[in-house]
Design a protein around this nucleic acid. Structure first.
Length: 630
RNA sequence: GCCUUUGUAGCUCAGAGGUAGAGCAUCCCCUUGGUAAGGGGAAGGUCACGGGUUCAAUUCCCGUCAAAGGCUCCA
């Protein structure tokens, strides 16, 4: 669930939404007699109520429920708080009053909730009622509160959608129907919220991914298996080139490993035991052995580490690979690029000595911060996932866990990261630091991750020879600053609404020849901007000879070895149409090219953000471009 | 996987128990244009797939697949 701050929880809006949830429950008890109410809290953008209904609640029922809510709100029911003297009285109120004469069975979940209230804590109820046309409408609910004073204050609300939700969030329990709604203090705020929601949908990466030609999904290929189109693939290349460069400077060594491996590898790593349900069905060769499509890269990198004797002087060893892994995610979990079944991690494993752990961890976090900064991702949450003391699903001794956690927290403090500790969010082999970012619809996704691992070195009996001539066990750091290219590109698409910054944009410059006769010249200019053309390069032998681009040699020198990603729009359309189409493609710069420009050695520059900038010498535009890129 | 919803042309969407339409995109013709859609024409669909009800199903019912919003999980 989304996190809420104390200001919100103390606000009138929060109480208003809580009361709106009650009002909805009241409408439900009237419209669906026998409905069993579970819980109905306010949430970040509204409220919900979980119920078990005697007949299925359909989307079309929402209209009637909302209608009844409005009627009930108009009755101006005062909301009265009551405190039960003791547990027995609370039980009586639940069974006799809360059931509203609809039978004790409807109290099933409320009784369970009562049991969950800690001893000594006050048990309160909120009661609302009013009479209308001789009929008494009443609703009373076990609830901690607080609420607003009167249902009449609930004016600006809307029921949003239906969903299933397990009772107490446990898959083993019955699935209840959750009705989501939202409420605001004013009609304007409600409208703004709904409007923003519509706007957010336009930023959906699935929509933009297709419109901008980044990626598609094909049912013929299979769910959760994306196809990267040329522009999306360029985006991947730009991101991987960037990170590869950063890693090179930080002493990472590239490795490449296969997509499948013998089951023996994953038995040794423990994945078959702990990760089996996330793995694609095994490939069974009846004569020889079983192969597994890889769900993680680490065991391969471990094999590489273990392939030779390591000295303490060799450490840290940092092995990096953009490794594609396959995980059999539940069908209902797939979500565009944010959750797929085949994805490429910007993975690396650092094998370090104990005395190097803190510094290496900090190095990784610093790289991760550098990545976020470069990507322009400013809003994120840092979560340190630690062991759940109640659980025994972890491996390794407490001392190592303690050390690992201290290293993580110390690193965060030294780097002045605002982090929060979340018990139970560790990996089974060690604590970790995750970066969590919201998508367009406000849903949180784990992006980058840094994990400390004592377990796998143990399972694979990894060693290095220490200064003392004796074998020692290294510690592993697993890390992925992006998390995965799929998720990161999906998220970036939403962050930028498809208008990627110049350095990332799959196409940086579109050249728009005004008439057909300008196309050869446009091609010539394109090859210069692309930085690979020799002076006598002829782009297309079919094209007529074009005038030389003035100052071409100087421009080549200016561009150097960094190619600009250029597209020449040769469609036989009017200039207006070309501008419109390329603007919709969110290309950072358009260069309009006609007789006047060829004559004068200029280009008509149009910026995605600033519109028409007028004609300028080509060298001036190139200077502007390079300035922006560097 | 579970709950709710959706599935009509490449895309966005109309439509009705009697075997289908628009705009954009595509192709062709005319237009060669100076900063957000020039004009005309053509082609394009087993109405997701498989059953059932019916004289007749794309429409109603059931199942399957896929997608969306949630729940549970996770990069």
């Amino acid at each position: 669930m989304n996190r809420m701050n104390a200001t919100y929880e103390n606000s009138r809006l929060y109480r208003l939404r809580h009361s709106a949830a009650h009002l909805m429950a009241q409408a439900l008890t009237e419209l669906f007699p026998g409905v069993k109410l579970a819980i109905g809290p306010p949430i970040e953008n509204g409220f919900y109520y979980d119920v078990e209904s005697p007949r299925p609640i359909k989307e079309e029922d929402l209209v009637a429920i909302e209608e009844r809510m409005r009627e009930l709100a108009k009755l101006q029911q005062p909301i009265v708080r009551k405190v039960a003297a003791d547990r027995d009285e609370a039980r009586c109120i639940i069974l006799e009053e809360c059931t509203l004469g609809q039978g004790e069975a409807t109290a099933e979940y409320k009784l369970q909730l009562l049991e969950a209230v800690p001893d000594g804590e006050e048990v309160s109820f909120y009661d609302q009622q009013a009479a209308s046309n001789g009929k008494v409408h009443r609703f009373i609910d076990l609830c901690r509160g607080p609420h607003i004073e009167n249902t009449g204050e609930i004016e600006h609300f809307k029921l949003m959608h239906l969903a299933g939700a397990y009772w107490r969030g446990d898959v083993k329990n019955k699935m209840l129907t959750r009705i989501y709604g939202t409420a605001f203090e004013s009609a304007e705020e409600l409208e703004t919220y709904l409007y923003n929601l519509e706007e957010a949908k336009k930023r959906d990466h699935r929509l933009l991914g297709r419109e901008l030609g980044l990626f598609i999904f094909s049912p013929t290929v299979g769910p959760g298996l994306p196809l990267w189109l040329p522009k999306g693939a360029i985006l991947r290349d730009v991101l991987t080139d960037f990170l590869r460069g950063e890693q090179l400077r930080r002493g990472y060594l590239p490795v490449v490993t296969p997509n499948i491996a013998s089951h023996r590898l994953y038995e040794k790593s423990g994945h078959i035991l702990t990760f089996r349900e996330k793995m694609f069905p095994f490939m069974v060769d009846e004569e020889k052995e079983t192969f597994i499509l890889k769900p993680m890269n680490c065991p391969f990198h471990i094999e590489i580490y273990a392939s030779q004797m390591r000295s303490y002087r060799d450490l840290p060893v940092r092995l990096a690979e953009f490794g594609t892994v396959y995980r059999y995610e539940q069908s209902g979990e797939l979500a565009g690029m944010l959750r797929v079944r085949g994805f490429t991690q910007d993975d690396a494993h650092l094998f370090v000595r104990k005395d190097q752990l803190l510094e290496e961890f900090k190095g990784v976090v610093s790289l991760t911060m550098r990545v976020l900064e470069k990507l322009g991702l400013k809003e994120y949450r840092v979560r340190v996932g630690t062991k759940d003391p109640q659980s025994d699903k972890y491996v390794g001794d407490d001392e190592n866990w303690q050390l690992a956690q201290e290293a993580i927290e110390l690193a965060c403090q030294e780097m002045q990261l605002a982090y929060e500790v979340s018990a139970g969010d560790a990996a089974f082999y060690g604590p970790k630091l995750d970066l969590i970012i919201k998508d367009a619809l406000g849903r949180e996704w784990q992006m980058g991750t840094v994990q400390v691992d004592y377990n796998l070195p143990e399972r694979f009996a990894l060693e290095y020879i220490g200064e003392d001539g004796k074998p020692h066990r290294p510690i592993m750091i697993h890390r992925a600053p992006f998390g995965s290219l799929e998720r990161m590109i999906g998220l970036l698409t939403e962050q930028y609404a498809g208008a990627f910054p110049l350095w990332l944009a799959p196409i940086q410059v579109a050249i728009l020849p005004i008439a057909d006769r300008h196309a050869p010249y446009a091609q010539k200019l394109a090859t210069i901007l692309q930085g690979f053309a020799s002076p006598d390069f002829k782009p297309d032998p079919e094209l007529p000879e074009a005038p030389e681009v003035p100052g071409g040699a100087e421009l080549r020198a200016q561009i150097g070895t960094e190619p600009v990603r250029v597209f020449v729009d040769q469609s036989r359309e009017t200039l207006g149409k070309k501008i419109r189409e390329n603007q919709k493609q969110k290309i950072p710069y358009m260069l309009v090219l006609g007789d006047r420009d060829i004559e004068a050695g200029t280009v008509g520059v149009r910026s995605r953000e600033e519109g028409d900038l007028g004609a300028m010498p080509i060298s001036e535009f190139v200077a502007r471009l390079l300035r922006e890129l560097r």
